[in-house]
């Protein structure tokens, strides 16, 4: 018969992956598999945020990035969120998106304190990311923060991101702020179009 009784662990485990090895040292090992193992183990160690984040900043292997991001999400503290946010300013779109998705999986109480201030950042791209993150927060203040963007943000693209987030939340309490946005950008067809779309969603149509 072609089915044979299995023999597990046929492949030798690299020493750096052994249970006794120091996972912090493992983060800079030349073997990507060892770096991933180190990240998995550090997910249980809330004190490991800075070594993980330092490695993430220079790591190029997608599999290792994912292991580090997953570990930081598991740690889930405000410190872990703060360590991730600077990466949103990176050129690398793949990394940016992965960071965005990861922060969205972290607890709202850890995310809000450092993401809400980003709504006032000088860089409008970062403000768009902040709007997207705030839109996914489980927090009672969320609609108020987004309405604040509609009323104050000078950049139309940031406002449009907030319209979209409010549309997804679907709370009609946002309607007055949407109406005022129309007055702020009366000439912009995209604003008219998105506000209409959001209004329709509130009416459930």
């Amino acid at each position: 018969m072609a089915l044979v009784k299995a023999k597990k662990n046929a492949a030798p485990v690299p020493a750096a992956e052994a249970p006794g090895a120091d996972p912090r040292a493992g983060l800079s090992d030349s073997d990507a598999a060892v770096r991933r193992q180190a990240a998995h183990r550090l997910a249980q160690d809330p004190g490991a945020v800075s070594p993980l984040a330092d490695r993430l900043a220079i790591e190029t292997e997608p599999g290792v990035r994912e292991a580090i991001l997953t570990a930081l999400v598991r740690i889930g503290t405000g410190e872990a969120v703060e360590a991730l946010l600077p990466l949103l300013a990176r050129e690398d779109a793949g990394l940016r998106n992965a960071v965005l998705e990861s922060v969205q999986q972290m607890p709202g109480e850890s995310v809000a304190p450092s993401v809400v201030p980003l709504l006032g950042h000088a860089d409008s791209d970062l403000r768009i990311f902040a709007v997207q993150l705030v839109g996914k927060l489980r927090h009672p203040e969320r609609p108020a923060w987004l309405a604040g963007v509609l009323e104050q943000d000078p950049h139309v693209n940031v406002c449009l991101a907030a319209v979209e987030a409010l549309g997804e939340i679907g709370d009609p309490a946002a309607l007055p702020a949407l109406e005022r946005l129309l007055l702020r950008f009366p000439e912009d067809p995209m604003v008219g179009f998105s506000v209409d779309a959001a209004r329709r969603r509130f009416r459930g149509g």
Partner: peptide
């Protein structure tokens, strides 16, 4: 029996990295 004998059954929790180390390749 031939089929029962051909499968390696083990008690493994897939979220436990230590147990998962036995599975490679």
């Amino acid at each position: 029996e031939e089929l029962r004998e051909s499968i390696d059954f083990s008690h493994v929790n897939i979220v436990d990295p230590e147990q998962l180390r036995a599975f490679r390749g």
